[in-house]
């Protein structure tokens, strides 16, 4: 027993070091894939307020770009207002539309903190579960998809941006209809890759890449980017498709969070699929 105590006394500094190291690294590696707490991120109350304050000071830098983006979107929406149309048939009465049911709602949000040059990039938004945000909701800006909500606090939320490992959004390539997964492996915040595109499908350079709407995170047809380069992978039956991302992550200010009203229905249905380990590419 005494020997044991002596041992501990001798190595107590190393043991303390090992303990701290283990805590930090355990938290690091688990947080990368399975975030549990928002307290240790910029979505916490303290972190969020600090970053809001910082954003309050620096947001003017990108104001021009943000404004012109919003203006563009406003124009597109205004063109769809009833006032922009001439009524061709006056005799028909307007009836409530039962053909369409609302599936997606959008929650506007402001980016208070974002990075684009790290190994995994995150974005902090100024809305939290108070505004109805939940983990796993999609986020997009008027340019294209931005990321997926990872954790939320009362007034803030942390979004894992497309510029991170394991985002894996379902995407399709326009015209050819090829489907694949969005991956970000490059060190460049302008480009990403689409993996799993079968190489018997011809893919044109410059064709649009859109969301596929699987998983219920993003609606079908949101822009992701454009095909930049298509090259074969040796020994595999898939293309390596490099795309140029639609969103400029260096000047991201206003985004929308997607609330899928029918998500539960889809998930309940998909839960009935027998579980199979997904194969890596």
């Amino acid at each position: 027993m005494r020997k044991l105590f002596a041992f501990f006394r001798r190595f107590r500094i190393f043991l303390f070091f090992a303990m701290l190291q283990f805590t930090a690294l355990y938290f690091y590696f688990t947080s990368l894939n399975f975030p549990r707490s928002q307290y240790y991120t910029t979505a916490s109350q303290v972190g969020g307020s600090l970053w809001s304050f910082q954003n309050h000071i620096t947001r003017y830098i990108n104001l021009n770009e943000t404004n012109s983006g919003l203006l563009r979107q406003n124009k597109a929406l205004r063109e769809r207002l009833p006032e922009s149309f001439i009524r061709l048939e006056d005799r028909l009465a307007k009836i409530n539309d039962t053909l369409y049911e609302q599936q997606y709602e959008y929650i506007p949000a402001t980016v208070v903190n974002s990075t684009f040059d790290k190994q995994n990039n995150y974005i902090t938004l100024n809305v939290g579960w108070n505004q109805g945000l939940k983990r796993g909701m999609g986020v997009f800006s008027d340019e294209g998809i931005v990321g997926i909500v990872q954790s939320t606090s009362e007034h803030y939320s942390l979004v894992k941006s497309v510029l991170a490992k394991n985002v894996n959004a379902d995407v399709m390539i326009e015209k050819s209809g090829a489907i694949g997964l969005l991956k970000w492996e490059t060190k460049n915040d302008k480009t990403a890759n689409v993996s799993g595109v079968s190489n018997d499908i011809a893919i044109k350079k410059g064709s649009k890449v859109l969301t596929r709407g699987g998983g219920g995170i993003f609606p079908r047809g949101l822009p992701v980017g454009r095909v930049l380069k298509v090259s074969p992978i040796e020994g595999k039956s898939t293309w390596n498709v490099e795309i140029k991302l639609a969103v400029n992550f260096r000047a991201i200010q206003k985004v929308y969070v997607i609330k899928n009203l029918l998500l539960k229905e889809q998930q309940d249905l998909e839960e009935k699929i027998p579980v199979e380990k997904p194969q890596d590419e």
């Binding site: 190291q21 240790y40 991120t41």
Partner: peptide, 28 residues
């Protein structure tokens, strides 16, 4: 020394979404 480094790392990590990277290297 390690305790101070740990606290400092937690401060930096929690404000920059690095989840313990700074903590780990500062403790080392």
């Amino acid at each position: 020394l390690m305790l101070i480094a740990f606290v400092m790392g937690v401060c930096v990590d929690s404000l920059s979404n690095t989840f313990g990277l700074h903590t780990s290297s500062l403790v080392l």
